[in-house]
Amino acid sequence: MKKSRLFLVFFLAFFILIFNKNVYGVGLDLPEPSRYFYVYDEANVIDNYLEDYIINTNEQLYSKTGAQIVVVTLNSLDGNSEQEIAVQLFRKWGIGSKEKNNGVLMLIAPNEKRLWIEIGYGLEGALPDGKVGEIRDKYIFPYFKENDYNTGILKGFDAILSVVLDEYNIESLNSSDSQIDGNYGYDENYDVDIGVNPIIVLIGIIIFLVIDFRFFGGMLTRMLMRSSSRGGFSGRSGGRGGRNRGGGGSSGGGGAGGGW
């Protein structure tokens, strides 16, 4: 009886998941966000230093304003328009905070030479399409035309960042700023502070393991292990403790882009 009910719950959850995907995905095969969320470099054009810079800057930005500026490169658009992929990805990942919808997604398809910068609803005032187009023409495309993706992404990212900071009346993000020490920007659900209460954490883990292996045959544990090894710590310096996520923001197609 118990087992069958459990099965039913999983069955339903499975269907809800499938259903949701159909509503939003509309046949697009969209990637899951990377472990550090702010950079997803499928086309492998972003250098490590730039990746670190974008992630660090975003963690500070998110903790202060809830805004998120995500950079994504894709190997292929699979025949879809860059705008279509951008808006679906934006909504799937939930970029920017849910209340403020203040996310930005910079989507780059180097092979197709297409770019789209999607602006969340909440930043459309600060970053109207014309302004985004200006950033594209001044800071991004001149470098992309020379195949210098790192400079284009960096300059474009900084230009967008400065507009966002202006919007929230912040002069600059500074890593020595006391507010953003430690893991402030991480998602609290993942940020287990082992330093304070190791016993409680240990008990929690044991309870989790017991429940998991007793009722789910260890499925959850295996899932967790797999997802953490997939994200991987390899190649990243500093040993990050947490995992970043989207804040649940949405967008409606605002922004600018095009081919170069």
Binding site: V23, V26, Q83, E84, V87, P128, D129, G130, V132, G133, E134, D137, G252, G253, G254, G255, A256, G258
Partner: peptide
């Protein structure tokens, strides 16, 4: 150029809003 960008962004918004509405 700016007007073209504004138009392109608006067209894209219409496409998204159309998808949302039809759904």
């Amino acid at each position: 150029i700016r007007l073209q960008d504004e138009l392109a962004g608006t067209e894209n918004r219409i496409a998204v809003a159309r998808m949302d509405y039809n759904e």
